[in-house]
Design a protein around this nucleic acid. Structure first.
Lengths: 173, 173
DNA sequence: GTCTATATCAAGATAGAC
DNA sequence: GTCTATCTTGATATAGAC
């Protein structure tokens, strides 16, 4: 995340660090506050409740994804392939945030207008604007990613090969 | 689940009911015990800890999946299509159990030998024995399923069409 | 195999002073 | 905007009697 300037940004940044270091259970209001040297009740002057703080983390995740995916497709001869690689990499580098962003309903009412769409746009373009194909591609990527993050593939599985096979099949459409 | 006969089976059955009715947070040792008319500490005579009880639920899920998927492909002219339908249906009917089975590492050491494989076999056969294709198909199904269960698709998304598009692409391989 | 009593722990959030 | 003090809640698990 960019340099946190406001107290609100400091809080988000601290929560992001805790999420990365200690997982979702590590993100308690007490721990977040302690990391910036204040007490938990003070956080409620900046966020009405934990839910809204969490949504701010998710928003930051979308901002990062949008930037990374946009760069990945830029001038690529194989946009869908580049996107798949970038998706998997970002998720692997931010496993807890990725999960937070995908495992429960999105509070779209608390998210900046257009943010979700900006993260999705590179994919929609990469599949030529076909929304059903875009959703199938997203689902394939999400399925491979979340099964890998959850360690659900058997130890001998060739995950790279599964990605190649799946993406190639969708590309043939 | 079949008629619970032993106390152990009664416990599993009660926990399964609680999971379905109240979600994972509803499955506390106290609630499970109360549902069969005993107290929480008594459960520890039947299961060493909550983790092993949870794994027993997961095992029951695999048993159900294996049965349902085996039936789905039997004599079907379109095994992969039938499997996709059966997979989505079972997961939708058992959303909390499905999630429990997929969102974290499998305790294979606590699972009956061969159980996981028996649930996977119909798919492996349906794709002609290609393990990479089988994993891509599983990931596609899991991605579509978990995004649907988590309510992560936008409200206007045509989820049926995404399934058809994804499965058709893999079938063309 | 069941019970009661208890250890142990930690979370989100509010009240009200400064 | 920060603090201290506190409310409220509820979990897994063990000890030891019956």
């Amino acid at each position: 995340m960019a340099e946190p300037r406001t107290r609100r940004e400091q809080i988000v940044s601290a929560a992001l660090d805790l999420l990365a270091d200690a997982g979702p259970d590590g993100v308690t209001m007490r721990a977040v506050a302690a990391r910036i040297g204040i007490k938990a009740p003070s956080l409620y002057k900046h966020f009405p409740d934990k839910d809204e703080l969490e949504t701010a983390l998710i928003a930051e995740g979308f901002r990062q994804m949008a930037a990374v995916f946009t760069t990945a497709v830029e001038g690529s001869p194989d946009p869908l392939g580049s996107l798949a690689t970038a998706y998997r990499r970002w998720a692997t580098e931010h496993p807890h945030l990725y999960r937070l962003m995908t495992h429960k309903p999105l509070r779209r009412d608390l998210l900046p207008e257009g943010l979700e769409a900006s993260a999705a746009l590179p994919l929609v373009r990469a599949v030529g604007g076909n929304p059903d194909l875009a959703r199938a591609a997203w689902a394939l990527a999400h399925g491979l990613t979340s099964l890998e993050l959850a360690n659900r593939f058997p130890p001998d599985a060739d995950i790279d090969a599964a990605w190649r096979t799946g993406i190639a099949a969708l590309q043939a459409r």
